[in-house]
């Protein structure tokens, strides 16, 4: 993984004025259970944020609130200048600009790789089929699997499927990407190919929020690491200070357990 440790290129610029995502005093409950408590988070355009924490800490729930796969009950979520409310139009507007990559890929098994990639551009962006296919092939080349375009997801390895899922999101030309544990369901040998794709994306200046346990990835690309526990943001810092000088007791315990 030596090439991964190279310093981040200068392209990874963070805007100082433009806010991509803002959560203000956001709260969420599952029935009686208070999953997210007073979340305050401001993500600037071009930021790469890694969210870590023990399971059940609410990290996945938090990023799923950003594209309204989960509904929040209190506080505000503003994505790309649009506040998420019950207004379905606003929700669709946000979802058009936010790409999401899931732990279990969630490719559509009845469609070919190419069809997976062109579906949303054709039906949501109303793009002509030909143009959508050109764009899809461009992104499939970027994730290095153009030759699989006419296969079905079931014929691909897990790592390839996840790269297709990333390409599929990129075809919508999103301004923000959410990653929900993108490597957790992969065999160890395939994690790197997916992480490399994500690094490439970060280098191009994509705004990213990643829930992940890949601490090497966090060190290399994140400009902020957020640590969550019991539905709260417990600590956030730049990766160097976060890993080398954790402040909160809970963070220290967590890091001692995952970094042997």
């Amino acid at each position: 993984m030596s090439e991964q440790a190279a310093p981040a290129p200068a392209k990874m610029e963070v805007s100082e004025t433009e806010v991509a995502v803002e959560l203000i005093n956001m709260n969420k409950w599952y029935g009686e259970f208070h999953v997210l408590r007073n979340i305050n988070l401001k993500v600037m355009r071009g930021e790469r944020i890694v969210i870590a924490g023990p399971s059940g800490s609410g990290k996945s729930t938090m990023i799923r609130c950003i594209n309204r796969l989960e509904e929040h009950q209190k506080g505000k979520i503003i994505v790309d200048g649009i506040e998420l409310t019950n207004d379905l139009k606003k929700i669709d507007e946000v979802r058009r600009e936010v790409g999401m990559v899931f732990q279990h890929f969630n490719l559509f098994p009845h469609l070919t790789i190419l069809e997976n990639c062109t579906l949303a551009p054709i039906w949501v962006r109303k793009m002509p089929k030909k143009k959508a296919e050109e764009i899809a092939m461009h992104y499939l080349e970027r994730v290095k699997i153009p030759e699989q375009a006419n296969k079905y997801p079931g014929q691909l390895s897990g790592g390839q499927q996840q790269r297709v899922a990333i390409a599929r999101s990129l075809c919508m030309n999103p301004r923000i990407m959410l990653f929900d544990e993108p490597t957790s369901a992969l065999d160890p040998e395939m994690i790197k190919e997916v992480l490399d794709t994500m690094v490439g994306l970060a280098e191009e200046g994509m705004t990213m929020l990643c829930v992940t346990h890949e601490m090497g990835f966090a060190r290399q690309v994140a400009n902020r690491v957020i640590f969550m526990d019991q539905g709260q943001i417990v600590e956030q810092n730049d990766p160097i200070n976060f890993f080398d000088h954790p402040q909160h007791e809970r963070t220290k315990l967590f890091l001692s357990q995952i970094l042997h």
Partner: peptide
């Protein structure tokens, strides 16, 4: 049909009927 299929469709901004 796994829940993930519904979520992926939603996350791509497809409408309910789409």
């Amino acid at each position: 049909i796994p829940k993930g299929q519904y979520e992926a469709a939603n996350a791509m901004a497809l409408t309910y009927w789409q």
